[in-house]
Amino acid sequence: MSKVSKQIIVVMMVVALLLSGCAGVSAPAAAPAESGAPAATFKVGLVHPSPITDAWSGQAYAAIERMRDELGAEIANVEVGDPAGYEKAFSDFASQGYTLVIGHGFQYQDAAEKVSPDFPNTYFTTVGGFKSTANYAPIDLVPGYMQALYAMGVMAAQVSKTGKAAGFTLENPATKLPLEGFRQGFESVPGHTFSMIVLRDGNDVGAGKEAALQAMADGADILIANANLAGDGVLQAVAEQGGDSVFAIGTIGNQNSKAPKNVLASAPLNIPQALFAVAQSAKDGTFEGGHVRPFTVNDEGVYQFVYNEELADIVTPELKALVDETIAKLKSGEITVEMPQ
């Protein structure tokens, strides 16, 4: 027997001993985990992909805070960005008797679909996704957000002098499709063009900034970013180099203060409002699984516009009226926003 194989055996034995020792010590603590019993209290768990201080996950956190304050929910949240951990996060919450588990992003739909049948007493929802089970129903905010940004596109088309707009996004339909809505609104004025720039990394603020500067050099005078933190870079570029000729539209949250002289308006997505409706139904027991719950501009309070008062001379009452008129037409179905192929 060689020296090396002896070493291996020794190492294996020692580590095996250590591991079994560890397992032995912790055995008593393992008891109270699995329980499918119905929860006495209303508990909501949130699984989110990024820090709760950023725009996207912050919305979801705000939603569960509201559930705590208004529905008396006991809340907890966990950040899971790593695909191999999705399922565990869902089953962790469910096995602890949570009433509702929210996955904040379409990427969680596979995990929700797989985990939900094992925990029939827990309701599951994800923000985005199109799968469902008896106790899992995703909400789809995209159709309404495409409509809302369509209206912003119509407004921006009136402000644009060059007829060129640029959008900045990530390779993900939840961020990309809303800008397709903006495109259709902006290009509803003949001759206007919109180009879309896909960024590699939603954390690379510098890349967002440079992309915006390139688009400005290319003549775009309306910029809109839906690209997580990289979108902050776009607004910085507009704030620093935009002067009084390049304007931006804020997304997801109210971003007017990030470039106060250049953001015409923001179109905050009131995710708390949408999720709150889901939580309400989970508490009442009226939660409906088995199908996607789509939101459109007809759902009051979910899609909003915050106009930048500092730019009131550009965003005139006439323009605001145009936005209202467009929204009315979208609600009635007179205008429809197409899904791009």
Binding site: C22, A23, V25, S26, A29, A30, A33, E34, K88, S91, S95
Partner: peptide, 13 residues
């Protein structure tokens, strides 16, 4: 510690 050894599921994880 309990995240690793707390229950069998965690060990499997």
């Amino acid at each position: 510690w309990s995240g690793i050894f707390g229950n069998a599921r965690n060990l499997g994880e």
